[in-house]
Structures are given as structure tokens and as C-alpha cells.
């Protein structure tokens, strides 16, 4: 064989090598070998499409797009309502009320005030408060100021503080840094504001270095029951991944795909599909599925529960058994 033929042979065999490697990759390392999921795809539904059976229904909680930047649900058992705190845009803060049947019945909007907080059954701000959660009153109420001019002696303030604290059901306070404007002399004098709930009215007391122990704040937020550790991979009594269909590989042992989740609500097993990432070899106590964008909230004593996925709230309502 002369040199030209030898060279042609080298060229052709290299081209063949390319073609073979592409064919090998396409046939053997492109498709994922897994059992068929067509039966499971019918049984499990994506939450975004809504689910309806004879016993329960799952639908979007807010029909319009309120769902941006919603807080966790606050549950008030005595009033049988759920309240959400949401920011539609930066200049306003809104609260939404869900009644005992799971319907959005009321909402209230305040202009943005960073001191706004849900404390007990009231919405408190540093200049006013609202009893909207209890009675739906949309007006802002002013605190009854015990010492409007801040010229009491420290002893007098302390005595009044103790007196009010004894007869109050609840106490909260605002620190001077968030209370006054930067150039207000009261900011420099470090005047705090303590508020006391007595017989359904909030009273305010101004003074220096007032301190309220806020470590045991009444917390009405519902805990997120969605397991975020390895218990999510195994059958448990709340929610778990029953199966996983791989769609494509992210890196070694990590796959994007559809998780088939069994959510146990009262006596029903709700079957949901969700896009999740699976890590086949998780380290430490981490689970195989990263479900940080999912949440499950169940208020005891109400006939509904919430599922959150990707910041969208869905409500599970039991249908009335006829």
C-alpha cells in the first residue's frame, strides 16, 4: 500500500470513529432506561391544573395573581379565620382573610410601613393599630397615649409601665430607632414606645429604655408540614414521593424529573405530580428530593388545608358528604 492509500485509510477511519461515537452516544447514553409511567401519569395530576374528585377539590386559592410574595398563613382558631400578609408592590402591604369555609372574604391594604406586624389578634403599626382580623373594621385606630408629651420623669414612667402591664392582656413595644425620624430629638433621647392591650383597646406609653420580653411572642403562623429531609423519600403519614420519572440528567446521580407524591389529608391520599430534582446519593440527613419550593399547611379544626408550590397557594377543600 503506498503512502497515499495509507493516509486515506487513516482519514476514513478517523471519520468513521466520529460517526461511531455519535451513534453510540445517541443509542446507548441518551435515552433513560426506566419503566413506563403512563398509568401513573393518569392517576397523578399536576397541582396547577386543579384536581376534583367526589371527596375533595384542589384549586388555586387566589383567583387573581395575588400570590406574589405571600407570607405563611396565620391561623386564628377562636375566630376561625386564616390571614395572609402579602406585598403586591413595594408601596403597599395587604392582608387577606380566608373564612372557615375556605373562601377569600376580605382584604385590607396599608401603605408600606415597616413596623407593621401581626401581634396576637391585632395588626400593629408604630403609629396606629387595626382590629380588622377580629371584627373586619377597616379603619386604623390610634393608640390612647398615656403620656403624649414625653416629659415624665423616669420613675413616673416606670410606675405607669408596671401598672399598665399588670392589667394588660398583651404587651408589645417599638424601639426608638424605628419610631422616630432621624433628626427627631426623641430619637436622640432614645424614647421607646410600649403598647398595652386592655379590654380591647391599645394604650401607648413613651419612655426611655422600656423593655418588653418578646421571646414568647404568640405565634399564629402555621408550620410547614412538608418534610424536607430523608423522610420525604419513604412512606410517612404526611407526604412522600411514591415514585419518580427521570426527564434528564443534571450531573452524575442528579436528575430532573416528575415526582409522584402521595399527600395524606384526613382519610384521603391525594396524588400529585410535581417537577422536582432527585439526588440519588444524598449526603448526611438530606433527602433525595429538594422540595424547598413546596409547602403544606393544615389548620386544625377547619375543613381545608393549603399546598404551596413555587409561591402559588392552592386550597384543598373537603366536599360535603351528602
Amino acid at each position: 500500500m503506498n503512502i497515499y492509500q495509507k493516509n486515506c485509510l487513516v482519514i476514513l477511519s478517523l471519520i468513521l470513529g466520529f460517526v461511531l461515537s455519535i451513534a453510540y452516544g445517541y443509542s446507548f447514553r441518551n435515552f433513560i432506561d426506566q419503566p413506563s409511567f403512563s398509568a401513573k401519569d393518569l392517576e397523578y395530576k399536576m397541582i396547577t391544573e386543579g384536581i376534583k374528585t367526589e371527596r375533595y377539590s384542589i384549586s388555586k386559592l387566589f383567583k387573581n395573581d395575588y400570590s406574589v410574595n405571600l407570607s405563611r398563613p396565620y391561623y386564628f382558631p377562636q375566630h376561625k379565620v386564616i390571614v395572609f400578609n402579602g406585598y403586591r408592590d413595594k408601596s403597599e402591604q395587604s392582608f387577606y382573610k380566608i373564612d372557615s369555609q375556605g373562601n377569600l372574604v376580605d382584604s385590607i391594604t396599608f401603605s408600606q410601613d415597616y413596623s407593621t406586624i401581626i401581634f396576637g389578634d391585632y395588626i400593629l403599626q408604630n403609629k396606629a393599630y387595626s382590629s380588622w382580623i377580629i371584627d373586619g373594621d377597616t379603619t386604623k385606630k390610634n393608640y390612647i397615649e398615656v403620656n403624649a408629651g414625653t416629659n415624665w420623669s423616669e420613675d413616673k414612667v416606670e410606675n405607669e409601665f408596671d401598672r399598665l402591664k399588670r392589667s394588660a392582656e398583651d404587651v408589645f413595644y417599638f424601639k426608638y430607632e424605628s419610631l422616630w425620624d432621624y433628626d427627631d430629638p426623641r430619637n436622640e433621647s432614645k424614647i421607646d414606645k410600649a403598647v398595652f392591650l386592655i379590654n380591647g383597646i391599645w394604650y401607648a406609653l413613651y419612655g426611655k429604655n422600656l423593655y418588653v420580653d418578646l421571646n414568647d411572642l404568640p405565634d399564629h403562623t402555621l408550620p410547614n408540614l412538608m418534610p424536607n429531609d430523608s423522610s420525604f423519600d419513604q412512606p410517612n403519614s404526611i407526604a412522600y414521593v411514591a415514585d419518580f420519572q427521570k426527564t434528564n440528567r443534571v450531573k452524575e446521580n442528579e436528575w430532573n424529573g416528575l415526582a409522584y407524591i402521595n399527600l395524606l389529608y384526613k382519610t384521603d391520599t391525594i396524588k400529585i405530580k410535581a417537577k422536582l430534582t432527585q439526588n440519588e446519593k444524598p449526603i448526611n440527613n438530606l433527602g433525595k428530593y429538594a422540595a424547598y419550593n413546596m409547602g403544606y399547611f393544615k389548620p386544625d379544626g377547619l375543613p381545608y388545608a393549603f399546598i404551596v408550590q413555587d409561591d402559588n397557594y392552592y386550597i384543598i377543600k373537603m366536599k360535603k358528604q351528602l
Binding site: Y26, R29, K246
Partner: peptide, 9 residues
């Protein structure tokens, strides 16, 4: 050429 992506041809 990422493996296991289920690309079509």
C-alpha cells in the same frame, strides 16, 4: 454532549 437527556435525533 450531555448523557441521558432524551434528545431526539
Amino acid at each position: 454532549l450531555e448523557a441521558f437527556q432524551q434528545y431526539n435525533f
